[in-house]
Design a protein around this nucleic acid. Structure first.
Lengths: 337, 337
DNA sequence: ATTCGGAATGTAATCCATTACATTTGCTTG
DNA sequence: CAAGCAAATGTAATGGATTACATTCCGAAT
């Protein structure tokens, strides 16, 4: 293991000088500098990060706590965080929780142990008050989901407003019997989307029916979406439109509808949310709300970076623009209905 | 920052004893042990990893070098590596290369800098001989792709054999005009799948036609798969079956076929590869080769772990079983043809 | 009672880069 | 030419956990 002392000996200078060259701090004569570089090159020296981290009390590593990196939605955010982090010389440690809060806490202990300088949380439950304890001591940023009432910086889209747009659109198509497939998880986005659904119906004088609200599982799985859709569509007074809170669920709904002999969008309008890759991989292309996942990730890192550097003006609430995209899975209610 | 000395003072013992308790090494009287635990609890002490890493000359971090974590195939492997690593007390640093070899090298420098103890490479080009330089010095494992001729442990399926199975099946359906959509990348799997395609045709006395071999882009994008399929299908003497080297490409091919008014599988048989999530999210469900992604990841970590511990009997070539799954996108050649 | 041995605990060196502080070098200026 | 000052470089302390080696303690054996 080549260390700084070896380089110093080789270059005939002191370790301090080598360090100065390494960090471009303090003044060093150009020729000395050159000698040091030569020595570094010759011995192919690479500074030991553990030693540097110990001394500097930082790791240049950030932690990303995600429930499931297999989900393309999270994967895209991850990619954004990772790319932005790399640009600033940071590496990303990924901690997959599988939605388990206990594992989420274990992940956060990485901060205590100084394995990472800060964390980006991708999917905290809206009532995870225990987070405040960590937030007081370490730089933390919420991305996409967040805990209400905690003073932790967050980046997300406006889920409520996006839902209003979708719902207004569905209603403008003439639909009155509008169902929703929500989820059993406790994310703020789930809550806001459900609220947006209910509020729009009420504003239009349409009664919110309990039997028009179905739940998919916490991970928005295709299977559970399909099952929820079956439940909704098998009722005697079946809905003509389903507002799904994720694309995978929408996909499940479309599949369920097809298997029941219903055509989408002719017999049933289905909308999704997030706009993951496969919304346009087959017909009908899904009408959905596109989230700027990659940018959510990038912005989250930028804010975390600011927090870690103790910059003063830290943005506490960043809302990135979404995009409502009308495609093929939605259509005016058919006249024969 | 609470350190080991503070705990020692609080518990009225020396730092050595605290360390012994922490690492369960050496003998400590139970009651002393208890006192130390109490002190740790009281001060809520967490060992500083940088210091520990420096002393132990290890990081308990592994590096995963992936071309694109957004691709569900890689994401599943990642999940497997991550879960298995966590079980052994390791964390996973993810380095996204975007397929850029330069970035792959930068990633590997994490090893030199002691930021990670070992690395799992998910997508090395088959001719990346420069890797041997690293492999000599650091624990490295190849997962899914590998470099021919290098003595680096690897985990993968038998791409050649799997391809033979698919091809034999397609031929058994009566197809003679069989095309393939390969990729412009330089992965060993791409090579083997193409070779499997050609070899099977030849064994059956079917000439390999250049105009039946199309190329998708390096990332197997849906778009490029669709474009390649268009090219194949617009020929006067169009193929009746397409062997695609990835599911995304198969999806593109199916979409292209549909847009041209061809039915799958009645007019065209399409097969995929990998069995990612969305192969059964819509009809026709894709006939494909299922790879045990999660287990490929887990096994890769296990081997890396063995390497890092300098265990003697390290498995150099692990081949995990694949599964050929016949679904809806393939069918006997129609009689009217 | 004395000695021996192992368990229990302590002291101090070590890992390596950074940096405060000290020293030297070299130039400018009166 | 000496003083003064800045630039250049060096010395040694520092960060926190681990661990080789040293010491103390206590019971068993003689």
């Amino acid at each position: 293991m080549v260390k700084i002392a070896d380089v110093a000996r080789e270059a005939n200078v002191s370790v301090a000088t080598v360090s100065r060259v390494l960090n471009k701090k303090g003044s060093v004569r150009p020729e000395t500098c050159e000698r040091v570089y030569k020595a570094i090159e010759k011995l192919s020296f690479e500074p030991n990060m553990s030693a540097r981290n110990l001394r500097r009390n930082e790791t240049r590593v950030i932690l990303i706590v995600a429930p499931n990196i297999t989900n393309p939605y999270y994967a895209h955010i991850l990619a954004g965080v990772g790319d932005e982090a790399r640009k600033s010389g940071y590496s990303a440690l990924i901690y997959n929780t599988g939605g388990d809060e206990e594992r989420e806490k274990n992940g956060m202990d990485m901060l205590k142990k100084r394995r990472a300088d800060g964390a980006i949380l991708l999917a905290s439950n809206l009532d995870s008050m225990w987070l405040s304890e960590y937030a007081d001591k370490y730089p933390i940023v919420h991305c996409s989901e967040y805990v209400k009432g905690l003073d932790i910086p967050r980046v997300s889209i406006d889920n409520y407003k996006a839902t209003l747009e979708v719902m207004e659109y569905i209603i403008s198509l003439g639909h009155k019997k509008i169902a929703t497939i929500s989820s059993s998880n406790s994310y703020i986005s789930t809550l806001l989307r459900l609220k947006g659904y209910k509020d729009t119906l009420e504003r239009h004088g349409i009664k919110v029916r309990k039997d028009y609200i179905a739940l998919a599982d916490a991970e928005y799985s295709f299977k559970s979406g399909k099952a929820a859709a079956f439940k909704l569509l098998q009722q005697k007074d079946r809905p003509t439109a389903i507002f799904c809170i994720s694309d995978t669920i929408a996909l499940g709904a479309i599949t369920a509808a097809k298997e029941m002999g219903l055509r989408v969008p002719e017999d049933l309008t289905v909308t999704g949310f997030d706009d993951v890759d496969y919304t346009t991989m087959f017909h009908p292309y899904i009408t959905t709300v596109a989230q700027p996942c990659y940018d959510l990730g990038r912005k989250s890192f930028k804010i975390l970076h600011a927090c870690m550097n103790k910059t003063n003006d830290i943005e506490k609430k960043v809302v990135l623009p979404h995009k409502f995209i009308i495609r093929e899975s939605s259509a005016p209610i058919s006249i024969c209905d």
